[in-house]
Nucleic acid binder design. Sequence first.
DNA 1: TCAAAAGTGTTGCAAATACACCCATGT
DNA 2: ACATGGGTGTATTTGCAACACTTTTGA
Lengths: 219, 219
Amino acid sequence: MPKGSPKVAVDIVIFTIDEGKLKVILIRMEKKPFTGKWAFPGGLVGFKESLDEAARRDLYEKTGVKNVYLEQLYTFGDVRRDPFSRVVSVAYVALVNKNRIKKLTTTAKYTGIDWFNMAKLPRLAYDHNKVAKYALERLRLKLEYTNIVFSLLPRYFTLAHLQEIYEIILGKKLDKRNFLKKINSLNLLKKTRKLEKGAHRPARLYEFRTRKPRIIEIL
Amino acid sequence: MPKGSPKVAVDIVIFTIDEGKLKVILIRMEKKPFTGKWAFPGGLVGFKESLDEAARRDLYEKTGVKNVYLEQLYTFGDVRRDPFSRVVSVAYVALVNKNRIKKLTTTAKYTGIDWFNMAKLPRLAYDHNKVAKYALERLRLKLEYTNIVFSLLPRYFTLAHLQEIYEIILGKKLDKRNFLKKINSLNLLKKTRKLEKGAHRPARLYEFRTRKPRIIEIL
DNA sequence: TCAAAAGTGTTGCAAATACACCCATGT
DNA sequence: ACATGGGTGTATTTGCAACACTTTTGA
């Protein structure tokens, strides 16, 4: 029977694309029994803030960015997930463009904060490896039927760049022509007149028609 | 900044099919300002029970059934969703076969409990109309790519009955032949030798190969 | 002129849809 | 015999996957 109430926290899986990898932010824990272990950033939810607000606040504190794509993932509530106190954690997924983040900062309770390659995560504190798994699954699914990928891109980008992000996240190669066909059929992009100069033939730059999250109509 | 912690509750949207309608259980609230208003059943999460356990416990208290399909839906955490105290609510969806439920019981705090037609819900307490919307969306989606419909059916059933449930939930008519083709291709059902006697040509009874939830392979 | 990435269409296959008649039974 | 729901197959369309060569530029 209920007695006392669990605490409520948020944890955020902050994805970005960097150096051709899908990366996430982790913080290093100080307190036992997770000393030295890494975990997703997060913290307790304040009495006067909604879950979304708590997540945005924490995201801002750690990365200094606002106006980020943020979505609730799942709520983890096993009794022993935190060995010290009963904490129910509402996990969020955020997508940010790496360029927008100047510096990662953390609070005194933690001894480090850094980007990690999602494909090679260490063993994390709490149940955060499970959180990671859910988050990646969700990201992959949503990539297919929403336009959220815009959050990971600068304003102007080439088709190759866009495709590369899909390939990194989905973990497989895509066919250039089929990819273009799909993207075109969704009507998300606007051709610009700009070109990206490089060592070789210049690539046309595109931008999103709109940079608000939306579900892509399936018909 | 955080001060104090929100309480944690679960709310359960308990779906069933009855009289050709999709129905849910609602309870009538006594305390102000929701006196007389209906809401989904639920309650605070105990210190020593997981979220899933809390949901199952409440489901059992209200309906007397165990071993029910139950799935976490979404966590609602707006500051003012409960005007009296700060409560974060983890919503669940449950699917039950109406026949398994003998009697609905509620605690002293509430003045009623009953089944309501999902298509004609009254204005509910809290943010429960939003919960209802999410739940229906989820149910419709999951129906398409899982076998969870078994939870709503008795052990033996006819194809017409199965199709009817899909039609009720999806809110549209399906083609009998195409429906059969789809169901067959998923290989979920076993023909039995039983027949359902009725006023006319007897219908063959089917059963599920397995009554455990599973994702239907898309390929 | 060569190297490197950009850009561009067609074909085949599989899955989804549309569609209508005969069958078995109880009355 | 007839009324009622049960049971069954084909043709078309549509979306997805496979596949290779030409173009443009900088060095």
